[in-house]
């Protein structure tokens, strides 16, 4: 099976508005403050094993990881900065 191509730099994405925290034990690397927010792919960083599985010593598939840029002012008007953050493909949807 061939893997899907990585999203290129400049792709607009939205972070899934989801709260696995409410559904029982979990380990998540997507900060709460980005859920539902729109950003732009800065660059793909490669593929890494899914930490949400590794945290429970379960078989972990490799996922594409992206550096994604956000405008922090859209989250907190006083922030006066933008943000680069690593996010896994499973947390991103087309914006």
């Amino acid at each position: 099976m061939t893997r899907p191509a990585l999203l290129p730099a400049g792709t607009r994405v939205r972070v899934r508005l989801d709260w696995p925290e409410t559904r029982g034990p979990c380990h998540i690397r997507t900060p709460y403050y980005l859920r539902g927010q729109e950003g732009v792919v800065e660059r793909p960083l490669g593929r890494f094993r899914n930490p949400e599985q590794l945290a429970f010593a379960r078989p972990a598939e490799e996922l594409a990881l992206y550096h994604v840029r956000f405008d922090l002012r859209r989250i907190w008007p006083e922030a006066d900065a933008d943000l680069l953050v690593e996010l896994f493909e499973t947390w991103l949807e087309a914006a």
Partner: peptide, 11 residues
């Protein structure tokens, strides 16, 4: 925002 959403305590 941090009061309105089910944020984990370490987040």
């Amino acid at each position: 925002l941090s009061d309105r959403v089910p944020r984990a305590m370490h987040d």
